[in-house]
Design a protein around this nucleic acid. Structure first.
Lengths: 255, 255
DNA sequence: TTGACCGTTCGACCATGTCGAACCCACGGC
DNA sequence: GCCGTGGGTTCGACATGGTCGAACGGTCAA
């Protein structure tokens, strides 16, 4: 019976919509967005509520994501070998570089952050685990795109979004950058996603030498770059060494 | 049509099983556990894979949770008002107490950790957001149980598990403790979950004065307790003040 | 080779989910 | 006050769409 199960597909679509839409949504609202009859959507919601994947505000009647979904989703991290192996090394990268560290994987042409170590000072920082970053405007993303077999092909569906004046929006320019990333073995993003913010990243490879993730640091341009706005070479080394260590932990042959 | 949708219920069961079972699982394994025919389970898995909720190892053929599920689940936190409002206050609680801070809600008779601030030193700590704690053996849990309308009634399904010699395993004893928690307005756990570990917590209430969560700190017994193994009163005050501040932020009338 | 086990495909039956119509609220304009 | 419009929810007949026994191709150990 090679054919997906309709009701499950629809339930997933409902969940995705509830996740993207910032706020709680009503049955009618969801039904309109999915172009489905109201009772159909309601049946799905009722079931999702039963299993705890969505919750309903008793007063407004609107729906939002449920705690059970959150808990189940977070146990994805336990099974994620990349993250498990990388825990120690990312900590030490954070203390060597004195910057915040992130580890990401490619997911639907974006970077899914699976681990995040705060900068080792006591400043307030927001946890970004589970967040998605644009792949063309972050160092993590460039590293992942550069080695991805599918690579840029998916990207041409929609134009590259400009986040700052420095964001690469031209496909050919990006392609050149990725070629450079492949050759150098690391990537940078200098104020391409957020003004004043810089990030550096290097690839993590598994035993088959396939790039399965990327590790990198990010911080203000004053600390990560020299006076010519070039990434500091010592930090680049730290990142590359961390990436290599994690790769070795995953069974990769040092390259 | 008041009746849950079978296939969605089953899909949820599959996901729950994949989340609890530490490792990747095969079709046959899942089918046996759920007492369903193999092709049925396979159909569900195929659909879940299509939407990215599960992934399949290309070599072993076994299944594990997928990245999409993780990302959707993590956006539960955005819509969680409790967590959003509590961010600032938990940070300052962490720096005042110099201990790690956690915020939790009751979920299926356990404590779901929705926020976690590391202890403000540079030690290595594991992120516990998304984890579940036993409610009878943690300060957070006691606070939540004490004010829960359903409360202990659910607990008598299965006996209280002993984690350490100090864990409260007797229902009557727990009931007395909860009464005390209600009166004092805060709860403690002295080596009841982990040897040498102590936690303190206080309730967070919303505008209707309903307890919607709890905030607390945890750390080694030497730092959190005095020589009589009693929680330090200054730390208790910090925790209670933080809880009250968050409650006020949620619209509660100071009690 | 054999057998046991795996993940996967096939296809017919009929249980199951679907969706138009109708219901009951809470609002808000008239 | 009344009706109209919107919300979330229930009903029920129809047929779509999911289910599961049987069978297929693969891998591994004996």
């Amino acid at each position: 019976m090679p054919g997906p199960i309709q009701s499950i597909e629809r339930a997933a679509a409902v969940l995705r919509l509830l996740a993207s839409g910032a706020r709680r949504m009503g049955v009618a609202e969801l039904a309109r967005a999915l172009e489905l009859p109201k009772p159909t959507v309601h049946g799905i919601l009722r079931t999702l509520q039963l299993v705890g994947f969505v919750e309903q505000s008793p007063d407004t009647g609107k729906y939002q994501l449920g705690a059970a979904l959150f808990h189940i989703g977070s146990s994805y991290l336990d099974g994620n070998e990349l993250r498990t192996r990388a825990l120690n090394w990312s900590d030490s990268l954070a203390s060597r570089s004195m910057e915040s560290v992130r580890i990401g994987t490619l997911h639907e042409n974006q970077v899914l952050v699976v681990h995040h170590v705060f900068r080792p000072d006591n400043s307030r920082q927001v946890l970004e685990v589970g967040a998605l970053l644009p792949s063309h405007a972050s160092a993590l993303g460039k590293v992942l795109l550069a080695d991805d077999p599918v690579g840029l092909s998916l990207a041409d569906d929609e134009p590259l979004k400009a986040y700052t004046p420095a964001t690469i929006t031209d496909l050919d320019a990006l392609s050149d950058t990725l070629e450079q990333v492949r050759q150098r073995g690391w990537a940078s993003d200098v104020e391409e996603l957020v003004d004043g913010e810089v990030s550096l990243a290097a690839p993590i490879r598994d035993r088959r030498a396939v790039t399965v993730g990327a590790v990198g640091i990010s911080g203000p341009v004053e600390r990560l770059c020299d006076e010519k706005k070039q990434p500091r070479t010592d930090l680049v080394s730290y990142v590359r060494e961390a990436a290599r260590s994690i790769s070795r932990e995953l069974g990769a042959i040092p390259w």
